[in-house]
Amino acid sequence: MKKAMWTIFGGALLLYIVIVMVIAVGPAIDLAQTPPGPGVVPLTPLQEEGRQVFASNGCDYCHTLQVRPLPEDVPFGRPSAPGDFAYATPEMLGSERTGPDLTNVGNRRGEIWQYMHLYDPRAVSPDSIMPNFKFLFREVKAVPEGETAVSIPAAFAPKNGDKVIATQKAKALVAFLMSLKQAPIPGYKMNGGMGGPATAAAPAASAPAAPAGGYAYDAAKGKALFDSTCAACHQASGEGVPGAFPPLKGNAAVDNADPTLHLHTILHGAHGVTIGGVAYAGVMPEFGSQLSDDDIANIANYERSSWGNHAKPVTPSEVAKIRAAGK
């Protein structure tokens, strides 16, 4: 009588333990030893505190932290490599993208954008459905010594004229978000796809053949790239955000026969500019390492021909020339 019981339950338990050892625990022990990849470093104490804020508030339920070797993941960076996660504990690879992946967000957005977006996502992304994180900020009559007010567009700022300052938690969170930068792995491309994991032995991408009759600007591609790369700060209307991100509409650098400054800024970024006596505090990331000459030409031409701008189109070879000239 007892025998049947122990055969069934003991057998079922033992078989299960064996499978779990082989499929989960064994691989986990091995994978936990994965060495850090090139350029992957531990977080600073402030960034570590920010990761706690990120986890406590469940940011990971809507934002993944993994890039797949699939074409649709190209906007988020190169495919994630095993060595990227050596210091990523707790793991936050995530299971849903109600919002975009954040693996490489530190290379795409600046700090000022992050503060503004956390305070009210609608201030920079009108269609966003992310909750506001106003509880990470304080509203004060006067900005205390040593603090800086977060720049918020008037329509989204406190109605009573109070200034907004970031709490320690917000600063830590933004430090963590800014730390999310992929270290480049040369040749590590989207060639994994269905067939296998991403590999470093990427075949050299064949250079696109120059279209007969010279260069043609792809307006649809230019708009799509602008919307996904630039509109977060400069806005789809090209009007920017006062005090933070300059307008491109009627911008002297954009709407200019000489594209040097325009292309230089896209390639190498910018640190606070003053246009027409108005200071814009936002820091623009460099996009030279993230976008090809072709993409940058398409974006630049979209900007040069939209919102009433009428500047002469640029070609990918002009982009290449300015890229080669360096900073």
């Binding site: 779990v20 986990a28 996660f85 793991e91």
Partner: peptide
């Protein structure tokens, strides 16, 4: 019985690091 194993594997700390933790999450 299986769930006792699952709960234990989920708590034990030795492999809850980086990609090792990802394998356990799955």
């Amino acid at each position: 019985l299986w769930t006792l194993v699952i709960c234990l594997v989920a708590i034990l700390p030795w492999y809850q690091k980086g990609l090792g933790q990802v394998a356990i999450s799955g």
